[in-house]
C-alpha cells in the first residue's frame, strides 16, 4: 500500500509543481493519473521514487517513509518500486536481456553486474518475464533493434524483474500507435492483476484511462481535483480537470478504437470474475 501525505514540490525556479497532495493507493489497485500537461503528473510519480526530490510531505510505502531516507537506504527502497517510462528509456545499446537484468541491479554486487554474471535465479526470472511479455526469442537482440511496442514490453519486463511492491508507469503509450497502446495497457493491467500489484499510471489519453483504470485521479496545477471511479468521470469533472479544453474531441476515436474498447471491456470483465 502506498500513502502520500501532504506531498509538495516547488522547483528552484519557484514554480509550484505539486501542492499538498494526499492520496492512498491500496494493494492491487490500478490507478490512473490524468490532467493537462504541466499539471504535475510526472513530478508526482517521480517524487514517489525520488527521481525528483519532494520539497515536503511524506511518501509511505508499507511502513517506510521514502521521503526521509539517506542515499544508500533510498537505493535499497527503490528496488521495491518498478518504473515504466515514456519512450521506454531502455539502454539502447545493450541487449534486451541486459535491459531486463538491469532490473536486478539493486540486488547484485557491482562486480556481478559488470561481468554480467547474474545469479541463476535472476536469469531464470528474466527469461520467464521475457516469455510473459512475448519476447522470448529476442533476448539477444539489441534494444535499438526493436519496434516501439516491443521496447515498451522490455521496459515492463525490466520493471517486473525488480519484484516490485509498487509499479509507477509514466505515459506508457505516448509514443505508440493506438493499437499497440491498447496492447501495452492490457499487458500492464493483466500482469498487475495477476500479482495483486498496485499501480499508478500517468496517462494523458482519457478514453484509454477510462477503459483500463479502476480508479482515476485528476490533477490540475499540482492539486487533486478529481478522485473516483472511471464511470464518475463526467463532462463536468473533465471540464474541472482540463479547463475549457475540448476533451470531447479526444473521445472520438476511429472504428478500430471502438472495437478495441469493446474487446478490452470483455477482458476486464473476465479478469474481474
Amino acid at each position: 500500500m502506498l500513502h502520500l501525505d501532504g506531498l509538495s514540490k516547488t522547483y528552484a525556479t519557484g514554480e509550484a509543481a505539486l501542492s499538498d497532495v494526499t492520496l492512498t493507493v491500496p494493494q492491487g489497485q490500478i490507478m490512473g493519473l490524468i490532467g493537462p500537461s504541466g499539471a504535475g503528473k510526472s513530478t508526482l510519480i517521480r517524487c514517489i521514487n525520488r527521481l525528483v526530490e519532494p520539497s515536503s510531505g511524506k511518501v509511505i510505502l508499507g511502513d517506510v517513509d521514502l521521503a526521509r531516507l539517506g542515499k544508500a537506504e533510498l537505493r535499497r527502497q527503490r528496488r521495491r518500486i518498478g518504473m515504466i517510462f515514456q519512450e521506454y528509456a531502455l539502454v539502447e545499446r545493450l541487449t534486451v536481456m541486459e535491459n531486463v537484468l538491469s532490473g536486478r541491479l539493486g540486488y547484485v554486487p557491482f562486480w556481478r553486474s559488470l561481468l554480467r554474471k547474474y545469479p541463476a535465479r535472476d536469469i531464470q526470472t528474466a527469461y520467464r518475464l521475457l516469455d510473459r511479455v512475448g519476447l522470448m526469442n529476442r533476448a539477444d537482440s539489441r534494444a535499438d533493434a526493436l519496434s516501439g511496442g516491443q521496447r515498451q514490453r522490455v521496459g515492463i519486463a525490466r520493471a517486473l524483474a525488480q519484484e516490485p511492491e509498487l509499479l509507477l508507469v509514466d505515459e506508457p503509450t505516448a509514443s505508440l500507435d493506438p493499437k499497440t497502446s491498447r496492447q501495452i495497457m492490457r499487458l500492464i493491467t493483466e500482469i498487475c492483476a495477476e500479482r495483486g500489484l498496485p499501480v499508478i499510471v500517468n496517462i494523458h489519453d482519457v478514453p484509454l484511462a477510462q477503459q483500463f483504470m479502476q480508479r482515476i485521479v485528476g490533477l490540475r496545477a499540482g492539486r487533486i481535483v478529481f478522485d473516483g471511479a472511471p464511470a464518475d468521470l463526467t463532462e463536468a469533472a473533465l471540464t474541472e480537470i482540463y479547463g475549457a479544453e475540448d476533451w470531447n474531441a479526444m473521445r472520438q476515436g476511429d472504428s478500430e478504437q471502438a472495437e478495441a474498447e469493446a474487446d478490452a471491456a470483455r477482458r476486464l470483465e473476465a479478469l474481474a470474475k
Binding site: V91, S102, G106, R158
Partner: peptide, 10 residues
Amino acid sequence: QVEAVEATGA
C-alpha cells in the same frame, strides 16, 4: 536512460 537505471535502485 540514466534515470531509468537509477530508478531500479542501482
